[in-house]
Design a binder for these strands. Structure first.
Lengths: 340, 340
DNA sequence: TTTTGTAGTTTACGCGTGTAAACAAAAAAA
DNA sequence: TTTTTTTGTTTACACGCGTAAACTACAAAA
């Protein structure tokens, strides 16, 4: 591999001049620039990234934390990751996958201090997320998919617009004539970490439900599909007036749907189902296909990465993609008018 | 951040001694080792990975190619990726996500030459995969999830055992009494790249079908669920004797299932469905839940990464995880005895 | 006694870049 | 003309580590 010295020799200039042509941090005359560029092309020169990182103190590598629970990873995380990785690539950065079983960031901080990582993107952000504090204290830039709250003014993030999402959901469900609606979220009792999305959506649903004349009944269960099955029986037996379920619990939603199918409960005839958290790519496997308001995961990953990198470069925060994404309602086969 | 010099000073030895204590490449006396280790601990010393990479010529970073088509990424890829990333992490390596729209590896080679990448893991490997040649020619170590063929003796890979998978599928389906079985694969006509898995499975199905007294009818269609829907009509109309479908096309399989549900075709009463390529985590969304023989994706990713890294380190190839994985049959709700 | 060997440690330098500071040449000001 | 400023380029070194080669102290062999 050709080095800067080779380029300098071929172009008949000093090594520093080559560097300055590349970075543009000093003015170099037109003819010299041309000579250097030609030499670089001829030698197929690529600056050594390790040397750049060592000398410059920046690796241009960021990490994406994949929170892996016992049950595996949420598939939407892959889409966040791909969006972020692709954006990073376009900007000359690289994204390393960082699976974690617990929520510890110790190893991550150690790696960042060793010079490999310039920044980190976090998912499944809690309202009070100690990881954010720990990373910041260690001097590591943090980007969020999601956000802490409510003082997030100085944070770098891309998140859903829960107010709009809840509004759209309630508007649509109410337009179908539903009055008694279950809102099914993930279980929070006994959990040390409550993802911020849950709190925000719950609050927004309460307001939007009222505004659209819907009675929102809050339920929660674990993300296991079996829990979704039990939940179906529960509402059929104890809350027969409920005619629609809005869900922020993709695992339970598919279980609910499966149970409805096998018990010949008509969907959407008897019960309409709308999921607010099922990734698009997952919907294709459901039957009948779920109506959703889903996060534009790829775009959100892209946005978070671009914002983090802009911050790393000290670049202006203009010309960046959206920060809040409502996601759009896609009407499929699990929602319909309430039966007369 | 503390450097080697700090440690050396505190321990009262030279910098080289510190390095040799870490790497163990020279013999260092017990008392000195103890002094150095204590100094490292006290200073919370972490070798700078960029300096290590520059001086040592190895970055201990590998890339994982995510082939992203227009339709998105196969979700099984996430599981491969997590397995590989976790294995890499355990071994002191890191894995960067490398999304590619086409199958070009030019940019990847350039990045490897710039010193950032020691090796690459490839997915969706074709029988004659030019990427493998290109990367090898550029001096980049390659690990495969899948394999080229048939001369793969010197290659580093983890792949499915298609012979066993096909055998298990045919044995089970035949035990249910099915005689006329469709085998549904992805479309190959007009495609420049044929994934090796397809060719191998087809060949194995032919043999195993014969051995189990099953008539295998080969079909192929695109991975679009809509194609799966059309396919259902096609076999019902033109091949009514077929009572089971074995699929190597997850997209079409879910479409098929959806169409069967909406047309009230009984599954598995009228038609049994067995998928050989649907990732476990995807199955939870199907209704009724698909019977599968699925690749143990996480373990395969783990194996591929461990093998690649062992090769990078020049380590022995012993004590490595399996190379060929058949995956186990998980009987769920879409298979049953043929109707009398 | 001298020679040879060995274990343990240090010296010395290279890896390829970023960039502050020094410098030279040409242009502008005095 | 001399002095100052500006522009363009180079010199010099730091970044933190890996490791070959040199060295020291001491034991063993001749």
């Amino acid at each position: 591999m050709a080095t800067r010295a080779d380029v300098a020799k071929l172009a008949g200039v000093s090594e520093a001049t080559v560097s300055y042509v590349i970075t543009g941090k000093r003015k170099i005359s037109q003819p010299v620039q041309v000579r250097v560029n030609k030499a670089m092309e001829k030698l197929d020169y690529r600056p050594n990234r390790m040397a750049q990182a060592l000398a410059g103190g920046k690796s241009r590598v960021i990490a994406l934390l994949f929170p892996t629970t016992a049950r595996g990873v949420a598939h939407v995380d892959l889409e966040y990751g791909l969006g972020a990785a692709q954006a990073a690539q376009e900007l000359g950065y690289h994204l390393v996958m960082w699976p974690t079983l617990d929520r510890s960031v110790d190893e991550l901080i150690a790696t960042a201090k060793s010079g490999l990582l310039d920044g980190v993107i976090l998912m499944e952000v809690a309202l009070e997320d100690e990881r954010v504090q720990q990373l910041k204290k260690a001097g590591i830039k943090v980007g969020l998919i999601g956000r802490t709250g409510p003082e997030f003014g100085d944070e770098i993030f891309a998140d859903r617009d829960f107010e709009t999402a809840a509004y759209d959901a309630c508007k649509y469900i109410s337009s179908l004539g539903h009055k008694e609606v279950a809102f099914l979220t993930e279980r929070t009792r006994g959990k040390s970490v409550v993802v911020a999305a849950l709190t925000r959506t719950k609050a927004s649903m309460k307001i939007s439900g009222k505004n659209h004349g819907i009675n929102i009944h809050n339920f929660e269960c674990s993300t296991d599909p079996d829990e979704g099955r039990k939940f179906l029986k529960q509402i059929l037996d104890h809350k027969p007036k409920i005619t629609a379920v809005i869900g922020l619990n993709p695992g339970a939603m598919v279980g609910l749907l499966q149970e409805a199918n096998s018990q010949r409960i008509e969907v959407p005839g008897r019960l309409s189902l709308l999921s607010m958290a099922t990734p698009e790519s997952f919907v294709s496997a459901t039957s009948p296909r779920l109506t959703t308001i889903s996060p534009p995961a790829f775009e959100m990953g892209d946005s978070a990465a671009r914002r983090l990198i802009a911050s790393l470069e000290g670049a202006s925060q203009d010309d960046l993609p959206k920060q809040l994404w409502s996601g759009s309602l896609v009407i499929r086969e699990t929602t319909g008018p309430v039966r007369a």
